[in-house]
Design a protein around this nucleic acid. Structure first.
Lengths: 165, 165
DNA sequence: AGCTTAAGTCAGCTATGTTGACATTCCAAG
DNA sequence: CTTGGAATGTCAACATAGCTGACTTAAGCT
């Protein structure tokens, strides 16, 4: 238990420190989603559309099933979002080539434009935070976040990150 | 646009790095809320109840208005949550002493029990992540999160953190 | 041929957020 | 003392985004 942090105080593991971390996550996540949310309000879209568009941009040609697993929602929930995106011409759904039961999802030019707009806003805040915090803080930030993920989600995250999608 | 990666260690500011940070936030937040969510499902409560109970435990006697500002929701939305908590005997709402228009909110014994259960689960994951990442990573984690908050929320967070609540 | 899988759909439910309108209570300023 | 405004609470109506369950269609596999 009391492992070798070589004389380190373990003060960062007190309940008080943990609670501060919890609250930091809560408030930071609000900031994290604030800018895209602002862009989306007034459009007929919400955070769910943002997430779908993000991961389609991230892995073009991804299947519905894969997206379901990444987003962790039911197909009914995703389908509602996806349908509006396809109807509005932001997403294209092509019948799979090898397996025709599958649908491969792609952003249209219009979809790409929206994705870029949302992503620019979110990256811009991220960049400001990273710049203010410095490279070492950023490395620590990533390390803790990865340790906080559920096992299944961590695997998905790493696979995406390392391009083994 | 074509931001100079001027040969230097600004590698952590590339769009690719920022995107990875964004996805890390997304997946980590899922883990962050997973354990309390699991406890709450089946009870008549949800994440909104958890948040209310958390911040009442954090600052006993807080007013409804203060809670509204911290949670960033409308009073109607909070009121629905608060009402069920009061009806179920988890939260006590006392008329303010100096200003009788205000209501001061406190957890009952029962409310404290639920809060502890939720908080234990959430802290436990946090502790595991902190332990795995080490003190320096934790410091960086906190630094980046704070830099990511909106100004108003950062002020609230710091006030809570430093006990100037 | 028959089972499984991928996707999509319909119906209905829940949780959590939103506006808008309004009542009550109380403090404070004219 | 009255009036105006602030803090709180309530009611109604609605939107978003999640859920379950039941079902269809088409395609692939054994």
């Amino acid at each position: 238990m009391s492992d070798a942090h070589g004389g380190e105080s373990l003060l960062f593991l007190t309940d008080e420190q943990l609670r501060q971390g919890i609250e930091a996550m809560f408030f930071a996540y609000r900031g994290f989603t604030a800018d895209p949310d602002r862009i989306l309000e007034g459009m007929a879209y919400g955070r769910a559309h943002h997430r779908a568009v993000h991961f389609i941009a991230r892995a073009p040609g991804t299947t519905v099933n894969n997206l379901l697993a990444i987003l962790g929602v039911t197909k009914q929930s995703l389908n509602r979002v996806l349908r509006t995106l396809v109807e509005d011409g932001l997403v294209e759904s092509r019948v799979g080539t090898s397996d025709k039961r599958e649908r491969n999802l792609y952003l249209t030019e219009q979809g790409t434009a929206l994705e870029r707009k949302l992503s620019d806003a979110q990256r811009s805040r991220m960049r400001a935070a990273y710049r203010a915090a410095g490279p070492e803080a950023v490395a620590g930030f990533r390390t803790v976040l990865e340790a906080m993920m559920d096992g299944e989600m961590r695997r998905r995250y790493l696979r995406l990150r390392d391009g083994r999608s």
